[in-house]
Design a protein around this nucleic acid. Structure first.
Lengths: 221, 221
DNA sequence: TCTAAATTACTGACCAGTCAGTTATTAATC
DNA sequence: GATTAATAACTGACTGGTCAGTAATTTAGA
């Protein structure tokens, strides 16, 4: 109850000037609200309140609601894809380890964090913001799919995987991961018991490995 | 240019009294617009116009925008799940055929039709309409997952499939199908060339069959 | 001519975006 | 170090347009 720089603001919090921190706090608040309620149904007053500022302040940092949306995507996406590429550097030689690391790593570092809401947001709004969708497509999707395809191709060449059509293998690989993230941010919070992420990932990894002809892949760490 | 009961209405179309046909025309128009733009961003005037009536008429058949949303889901979903169950009756004995029929049948009869937009709509709006989400969950998702699980379990018991954890196999099975439908209704219409559904389904079916330990499954018809 | 289907014109709540004014912080001067 | 001037971050009441929902009126069809 001191003057801690509260992310969840105190009612009695004194007004503070924090130019550096504002944009990030605003995009974080906007991401969670956009994911929860959708772009159109989210009010700017609400975003500002969650970030602990007034709506006027929001307009000091972003020109419009749409500009805020673009910033949310751009900011959430750059670290995400860099994580992915860094992950690939670490185990350049072993396709099985690479796929396992990628699968569990994606969930741990993206899917199961705040960023996990971005797929839902992008799918919901892609047709309303084609320009942002195009940016997302070339910055994240295209790059990400290429990474996975490369790993699988390498595995096939090494004889670790059976010969398999690699053109769309990235899409198939990602589908269950995205499914899990989408579930978390839609039905997950409302009905039945939530999907068990651990079991789901294990089921998928097991099926995937056998599908690629690997008989003895161990589960993760 | 005659007085045909136009789905895409003629500007000069005479006013007609068609009490029977209106609700279905309105829900069809609403589904396509909700999928395209989202619930909140879709205006009732627009839905009415696409159905060839005025907004006032819409209120003769639905109490509110939310009631229309519920009707869209309920109407789209009942035939869909019945299709699915009928499909299962036809090949009760052969798990491989069942899975193939289900996979390609789902795409042909649901994913690749207007109904294919419902997953996007439900994922986008589940948290805004928890009551509808719960209805959808128990009417479609729960029932559908159970069907797939049953097929796989039967296959394992018959020794056609290798022993595999069946608890979440339905979710994994559906994930790529839903991914394809979601793609069609988001990025598909904006960037790059569209995902090739035939190749995608073939890649998935091939990986799935090998994942289940079936070595000689033929591609469809 | 009577009824009910359909339209048109209207209302009021809501909300993105604005701006005149307020307050925190820094800099200058004594 | 204390006082004050200057600046820039921040606020919240306001506005103009939009849109869900309503009510008055018109018209199709029996």
């Amino acid at each position: 109850m001191t003057q801690a720089p509260a992310a969840v603001p105190n009612d009695a919090a004194p007004r503070r000037r924090r130019k550096e921190a504002r944009p990030q706090e605003l995009t974080a608040a906007a991401l969670s609200l956009f994911v929860e309620k959708g772009f159109a149904a989210t009010r700017l007053d609400e975003i500002a309140a969650r970030a602990g500022v007034s709506k006027g302040t929001l307009y000091l940092y972003f020109d419009s609601k749409e500009a805020l949306f673009k910033a949310v995507i751009a900011e959430g996406v750059v670290p995400a894809i860099e994580e992915g590429e860094a992950m690939l550097e670490r185990h350049a030689d072993d396709p099985v380890t690479l796929l396992r690391e990628f699968l569990y790593g994606w969930w741990a570092r993206i899917g199961n964090t705040e960023l996990g809401g971005i797929p839902k947001l992008m799918i919901s709004e892609a047709r309303n913001f084609p320009e942002v969708a195009a940016y997302y497509h070339e910055t994240v999707i295209h790059r990400g799919l290429k990474l996975i395809r490369t790993v699988v191709q390498r595995g096939v060449e090494q004889g670790v995987f059976r010969p398999v059509s690699t053109e769309l293998i990235g899409n198939v690989f990602m589908a269950p991961l995205l499914h899990l993230a989408l579930w978390r941010h839609s039905f997950g919070s409302c009905c039945a018991r939530d999907l068990d992420a651990e079991r789901f990932l294990a089921t998928w990894f097991d099926l995937l490995m056998h599908g690629l002809g690997v008989r003895d892949a161990e589960p993760p760490q």
